[in-house]
């Protein structure tokens, strides 16, 4: 992979969970597909100038209906369907899964994480503790303006909007430290509104929570 060097603490192409991994796969498929399509247009354009004899046999109808309508319809139908199915798989459906629930409260300019399943713990500020290998549902709320909750290596982002509650499901494959940022511009402290994610081995999770109080 040409961009395989794209590792980084916040790299979406260096996934550490199934959601981020499946989206990274989608990216690579789209990247190669787009490269092929771009090359096609570039070659046709070059031929139109320098080798037009070869493509002049195409009738206007073939240009417009074939390349302009037919080709995108085929490509897009496949892509939209795939993405929809994939998106469904990433949603926090409750059937057959028992996720851990963590409440996230965003405010200018910090993240507060509360653990309703562990009474008496937290909230932890700027540090999110979660078990690894277990799906975690994070309920996002905001105390002031709109913030964007995003841990790139684990999965997609979702906004914390005042007056609304959003739920994002993430799973960390391995215990370790990950990084999160505020993705939605939220004022002067937006740049600094980062947080740390510590994924613990499931057996260590409760102990870590106790230790954080």
């Amino acid at each position: 992979m040409p961009l395989a060097g794209c590792t980084g603490l916040l790299s979406t192409l260096d996934p550490a969970g199934p959601a981020a991994a499946s989206i990274a796969t989608l990216w690579w498929v789209m990247f190669y597909g787009a490269t092929v399509l771009f090359a096609l247009v570039a070659v046709l354009l070059a031929m139109s100038y320098w080798r037009s004899g070869l493509i002049r046999r195409l009738t206007p109808l073939q240009w417009i209906l074939g390349l302009g309508v037919g080709m995108p319809v085929v490509v897009l139908t496949a892509l939209v369907t795939t993405a929809f199915v994939q998106g469904e798989g990433l949603l926090p459906h409750r059937d057959g899964v028992r996720p851990v629930t963590i409440s996230v409260l965003a405010r200018q300019w910090r993240w507060e994480f509360a653990y309703p399943e562990s009474p008496g713990v937290g909230p932890t500020i700027g540090v999110l503790h979660m078990p690894a290998g277990v799906p975690v549902d994070l309920t996002l709320e905001s105390a002031d303006v709109i913030h964007g909750f995003w841990i790139p290596r684990l999965g997609g982002k979702l906004d914390a909007i005042p007056g609304h509650v959003n739920v994002v499901r993430l799973l960390a494959d391995q215990p370790g430290r990950y990084h999160g940022v505020c993705a939605e511009f939220c004022g002067d402290g937006h740049t600094q509104m980062r947080f740390e994610v510590i994924a613990h081995a499931p057996e260590d999770y409760q102990a870590a929570l106790e230790a954080s109080r």
Partner: peptide, 23 residues
């Protein structure tokens, strides 16, 4: 523009958008 159009189709795909949005 063709590159912009192609990345536009990518961003129209909901899961990818969840990662790329606001970046």
């Amino acid at each position: 523009f063709v590159i912009g159009g192609l990345t536009g189709v990518m961003l129209a795909m909901v899961p990818f958008n969840w990662q790329a949005h606001d970046t």
